[in-house]
Amino acid sequence: MSDLKARPAPDAAPAAPASASRPRPRIRGVGEVAALVVLVVVFAVLNPGTFLTLDNLRTVLDQAALPLVIGVGATLVILMGSIDLSVEGVMGAAGMTFVLLSANDRNGLDLGLGAFVVAVAVGLALGLLTGLIHTLLKVPSFIVTLGVWYVGLGIATLLFGQAAIPFLTSDGLTSWPSDTTLGLPHSFLLAFVVVALGALVSRFTRLGRYAFAIGADEQIAQDNGVPVGRYKLYVFALAGGCSALAGIVGSLQLGAGAANVGIGNLFLTIAAVVIGGTALGGGKGGVLRTALGVVLLTVLNNGLILSGVSPNIQSAVSGVVLIVAIAAAGWAYRGRLRIAK
């Protein structure tokens, strides 16, 4: 990640007031926080004794971990005004790579940490491939990433092969995500670190600032000397890396390799990015907002399950929430002609 030219993080927490030249966090996001509070209160009343328990909190945090990690990459991509639909494919390819290179019951390989490195590299490579096609061949990110989704899924399917399900054989490894430190599951702690790094990168590094600039107006960014193509490459590679990391954690949670380990994560993540308030057109938003969106949606799903809402209605509710959120976010701009990329 040396390409990122990350400056050392300031001593203060990321929320500390930045210098005048940096955009201050506006007091938007209040609506999302309020929505989260309302959800928590409603579900706590509906499910006394089950919703506000330590066990359920751990479940929510464990389930939020994957979309949180993916959300970091997805937010940066969407900030640039592009979109990354390849999430589930990259997760599958990286997850299967990780499982087959770790101690498993299909082959004798056990590369230990090497498996992790190779799997993340697979994600970076797929992200890089996306970026190259997008920037060199000028193919819209929507269609490139749709293709790469299936390329990733294809790689995962090939790796899965036709033999029995490959299980991870090291109990220490598979129990890692749900084991707790300070009462919090490791999967969530990892996601927390990734989100914090993502927030720092997007606020304090050239990569992050350029992503905003490219999303706000690519032409102006280019005219001002931003190497647009190069930074798009970096962002897509970073997003691929995030998806890969999520694929690895997902495989650890499952304790086995599965080509569709990422199933359902694309919808959840894109929805979280939008609900968090990052504009699909690019230029506005942020990683922390997405994190809030993820938590909101995870709590919503969890609460609906605890309340005994039928799964059919539940998926419809998720869809409605997404559409309402997009409509609400775009309300101010509805009169203007905006091009959604």
Binding site: D55, N56, V60, D62, N260, I263
Partner: peptide, 21 residues
């Protein structure tokens, strides 16, 4: 809770049901 014949979805659904019951 329908889990769509899927190991991963079943994992999540069971996790939620364990939290509930």
């Amino acid at each position: 809770r329908p889990a769509n014949w899927d190991q991963q979805i079943a994992f999540k659904e069971t996790q939620s049901l364990l939290a509930k019951y």
